[in-house]
Simulated assay, not measured.
Amino acid sequence: MSTDLIDGVGPDHEYMIPTKFIKNPDDMVLWENSIAYQEYLGFILAINEAIKGKSLKYDALPVSPTITKLCGVIKKLDQFINETPPLEQPQRFGNQAFRLWLEKVQNATHELLSEVLPEHLQRALAEVSTYFMESFGNQIRIDYGTGHEISFIMFLCCMFKIGALEPDDKIYAATRVFNDYLKLVRKLQQTYRMEPAGSHGVWSLDDYQFVPFIWGSSQLQAHPKIEPCSFLNPEVVETFADQYMFLSCIAYINQVKKGPFAEHSNQLWGISGVAHWTKVTLGLIKMYRAEVLGKFPVAQHITFGSLLPLKPFLQGRGTDRRFLGMTPPPSTGRSSMQVPSQKPT
């Protein structure tokens, strides 16, 4: 089975500013049968395959200049947080300094990303930067959720499509760029007391993220010691959180939540009873399709442009679906993660 990413766009490709098109629940069928949906999910599967069994410390391949520059961009946004401390305000959540931080990001994005893209790809700047700027939270509600996570993954997907990132960059796109992004949005959540977007337990596994659990479970496949039940052991989490995304997510949950794990993170607690990481990964992908990509409150915020268009999949070019040399199976419309029927003790 091929693991090549899709063919890049041509030099005469016409870029466009991504726009929201999902206006009501009836439009969900357009999204779920679109080129954008197939390519986005195919991209997640391709990265999933690339990082299987590889830790966050993997360094067997050279790091491309583009990966290094993208990590530098995220580091710059982290500096913006340090320069924008929380404001003193009566309300506990939603510190308004976040709006000042995001304004700095929006003002700097064009310059920051123009330094990442080579000259012949500068025409793509407006399209890819739209996804980038939508990746960090909502300026009005001061919240963050899986929709913003989708925007950042779409940004990475588009960087591969235009050729700024190459197939050999798949591993580090996840283990370095995306992992740095996770650290950044966690710092945002804590610094500005951001609310979770959507509904906890419906559109994410924890309050904020989903994809790092998918990719993180793939990293742990065939690990000689760490089994799905192991993440309930605080010592295992503390020891390996800097090596595996799944465990870093658990470490963050343990940091921000109090009380029995089975009560505040019941879905994750149930996953700990699955026998093998391979089964966890497959179940999470199905759950993600049903409980995140299949939810109108999430999909209504997704934007579509020339690189990820809301066009019927069957009318797309054949290469538009070859992130993994395969087409993802049709959605069942429901989650099929099977977890043990147990009750918290």
Rank of each mutant, 00 (worst) to 15 (best):
T3E: 11
I6C: 12
M16T: 15
I17H: 10
I22G: 07
N24Q: 15
N33K: 13
S34N: 07
I35W: 06
G42C: 06
L45E: 15
L45S: 12
A46D: 00
I47M: 10
I47E: 04
N48P: 06
I51E: 04
G53R: 09
Y58M: 07
L61W: 14
V63Y: 12
K69Q: 09
L70S: 04
V73E: 08
I74E: 02
K76V: 14
D78M: 12
Q79D: 15
F80Q: 00
F80M: 07
T84L: 01
T84G: 07
P86I: 08
P86L: 10
L87R: 15
L87G: 05
E88K: 15
Q89G: 03
P90S: 13
N95I: 05
Q96S: 15
W101G: 00
K104C: 06
K104Y: 10
T109Y: 10
H110T: 13
L113H: 07
E119M: 14
E119I: 14
L121D: 05
A124L: 00
L125C: 01
S129V: 09
T130E: 11
T130R: 13
F132Y: 08
S135A: 08
F136P: 03
G137V: 07
N138H: 06
N138E: 10
Q139C: 11
Q139I: 15
D143Q: 03
E149R: 05
S151I: 04
L165Q: 02
E166D: 14
E166Q: 15
K170Y: 01
A174C: 15
F178T: 07
N179F: 13
L182T: 08
K183C: 12
Q190V: 08
E195D: 07
A197G: 08
H200K: 14
V202A: 13
V202L: 15
F213W: 00
W215K: 00
G216C: 01
G216Q: 02
G216E: 06
S218V: 04
L220I: 10
A222Q: 10
K225I: 14
E227V: 14
P228E: 03
C229V: 11
C229L: 11
L232S: 00
N233D: 02
V236H: 03
V236R: 01
V237D: 03
T239C: 11
T239N: 12
A241R: 12
D242P: 09
D242G: 11
Y244I: 03
S248C: 04
C249R: 04
Y252K: 01
N254C: 09
K258D: 04
E263G: 05
Q267T: 11
L268P: 03
V274P: 08
A275K: 10
W277L: 03
T281Q: 11
L282N: 15
K286L: 12
K286P: 00
R289Y: 03
R289G: 06
A290L: 01
G294K: 03
F296E: 04
Q300M: 13
I302P: 09
T303G: 00
L307V: 00
L310S: 03
T319Y: 14
F323G: 05
T327C: 04
T332W: 11
V339Q: 09
P340D: 07
